[in-house]
Nucleic acid binder design. Sequence first.
DNA 1: AAGACACGCAACCGCAAACAA
DNA 2: ATTGTTTGCGGTTGCGTGTCT
Length: 259
Amino acid sequence: MVRKPSHGDTTGAGNGGTEATKERKGLWSPEEDERLFAQITYHGVSTWSSVAQLAGLRRSGKSCRLRWMNYLRPDLKKEPISKREEEIIISLQQSLGNRWSAIAAKMPGRTDNEIKNYWNSRIRKRLNAAAAKAGSDDGASTEPAPAGEEKVEVEPTNNAATEAGPMPIPERFPVFACQLLNGGIGGGSGSGENTPSTTSSTQQKSSEESEACVGDSNMIHFLSFDDLDYPDDLLMDLPGAMNAWETELYPSNSMSSLN
DNA sequence: AAGACACGCAACCGCAAACAA
DNA sequence: ATTGTTTGCGGTTGCGTGTCT
């Protein structure tokens, strides 16, 4: 269920403060999404606060980052979490705990927020119910396990468990050279100014995370389009890609131009 | 038909780590 | 070494939508 973005200031976007200067909060409008998407796609990310500024968004860098990571990234899967993925989540949660970003890093196309929400709203509830039922069945343990410590029957656990399933969990995203950014578009000029994300290349994560995590600002170099239905030639064409992207996000909206 | 309730998701908040000056 | 800034993460909240009564 994708909530339709409301254009108006919803949660206090305009609470007090002058319209022109006050930082916006609340849901993102399609126009804001377009601006952010275009800014990042064309110019990459130096710092998130600069992205917000350059895109002309009255949003915090933090908010821009969140929106990109959780919603706009082209490599995000749009279909609901599958049974198989659910098993993976449960298994990884057992071995990693509530380290949602680490879990998300093992699940291409899924975000930490998505996984966290999924866990909190569905799995945890189900597990608690199962635990309660088990407790009432054998009276031995009547208390449901505390959140985050549930034991579930999901294949053997331990780290091997995450690799022992029918399908191996990818250690990292399939890395596709990002046509959009490696000269395909964005002027393709390769001008230094437009080089995306390179300024943050000094930010090194742990080897584990830097490989798998799409959360760092270098991720834009590693965009994976394998989950998209868009043809390659469309991806080479930013306006076309944006059209397809927006149509999918806002099927009821007609594409509005960037200006 | 309408109100109450539950659910799911997007986004905010606060904190800590990483980094730069 | 210290301080300020930015980023990333996990927990939590608010709101739209679906379902129930």
